[in-house]
Design a protein around this nucleic acid. Structure first.
Length: 203
DNA sequence: AAGTCTCT
DNA sequence: TAAA
């Protein structure tokens, strides 16, 4: 569908408007199913502060954090297996990442009005070469990305509902985060806020 | 520090 | 309040 990315920074590609409104709503109903089986929760950082972002996962693994550190776990804290990753989400992965193994984790992050996420690297996976794909739904978010060192120069871009971002190659281990969201900027979520889906190969 | 504080 |  999309020939090429329309933003590129250190190899991080952003496909603005990848999902149309119809596709965004379809994705949203898939997410409602996931959240009903695997409710959102606020993980604790390893140093005991609750994260402002609420999250859950789908797939073989879910991302988790507490005093023991960042890791992937095979079950939701409620003891049940994570729901399966919907086919429609897998299709986006294969469209943009091509010949890659199937994603094993679809992390669902929910940002309410004041939620943000500090600069970090995605490095809890066994093979750090597989791409990371992120889908934005709902309110606009100010995304910041730098290089592989925390003090590298950073650049910011507004992500909107329907945008898809892929971090591969040089950007796979780039520091990135969300500085803030523009609460109420999208009508997609009746409740307001932003949903972000992150697809990763874990093993 | 996947947070937060501080400085502008 | 936004940038870093």
């Amino acid at each position: 569908m999309v020939a090429g990315a329309n933003f590129n920074f250190n190899g991080c590609q952003v496909y603005k408007g990848y999902l149309d409104r119809f596709e965004q709503h379809a994705l949203l109903s898939e997410l409602r199913m996931i959240v009903s089986k695997a409710p959102l929760f606020s993980p604790l950082t390893p140093w005991g502060k609750p994260m402002s972002v609420k999250m859950t996962s789908a797939g073989k693994y879910g991302w988790y954090s507490d005093h023991k550190g960042y890791r992937y776990i095979p079950k939701h804290p409620n003891g049940t297996h994570w729901p399966e990753i919907p086919r429609s989400i897998q299709a986006i992965w294969h469209d943009l990442c091509g010949d890659q193994p199937n994603p094993e984790c679809c992390l669902v992050n929910y940002y309410e009005k004041k939620a943000k996420m500090g600069l970090h690297q995605d490095k809890d996976e066994k093979n750090l070469m597989h791409p990371v794909l992120s889908i934005s739904l709902g309110d606009d978010a100010l995304f910041r990305i730098g290089g592989q060192n925390k003090n590298d120069r950073t650049e910011s871009i507004w992500l909107s509902s329907g945008d898809v971002l892929v971090m591969s190659g040089a950007s796979r281990l780039a520091y990135h985060g969300i500085d803030r969201i523009k609460y109420g900027s999208s009508q997609l979520l009746k409740s307001g806020g932003r949903l972000n889906l992150t697809l990763r190969v874990v093993d």
